[in-house]
Amino acid sequence: MALEVNGVAVELDEEGYLMELEDWTPEVAKTFAAEDDIELSEEHWDIINFLREYYEEYQIAPAVRVLTKAVGKRLGKEKGNSKYLYSLFPFGPGKQACKYAGLPKPTGCV
């Protein structure tokens, strides 16, 4: 599988996540979102950027609780919950937001 970003093919795994993390650019996120009929707003980018920062530090996506707490701190308490995240990423913040951010899919009993 591959994703075409500005005429360049980016390799994806079976589930549509980036094969190589280094292939990520903001354009990749926009292309993924466009496939889901989502236009990325500033709110989406806040989450995507946080995920990428967290991943850089810990080599894993943040737990849902860690994510909602961080969002609450940065964007206000009323946004620090799963409902807000699902309103942005209807397929689930963990999996869909990770995909846009170029992170591997969380695995396990989740």
């Binding site: 530090e57 810990y58 080599q59 894993i60 943040p62 737990a63 609780r65 860690v66 707490k69 969380p106 695995t107 396990g108 009993c109 989740v110």
Partner: peptide, 27 residues
């Protein structure tokens, strides 16, 4: 893939020690 992560990191998620410690501290 998941069993491979347990052998390498210790859990199904591939959650390394530092991330686990940070998560627990938050809780």
């Amino acid at each position: 893939e998941i069993i491979g992560k347990v052998h390498k990191v210790g859990n199904n998620l591939g959650l390394p020690q530092a991330a686990l410690a940070d998560t627990l501290e938050g809780l």
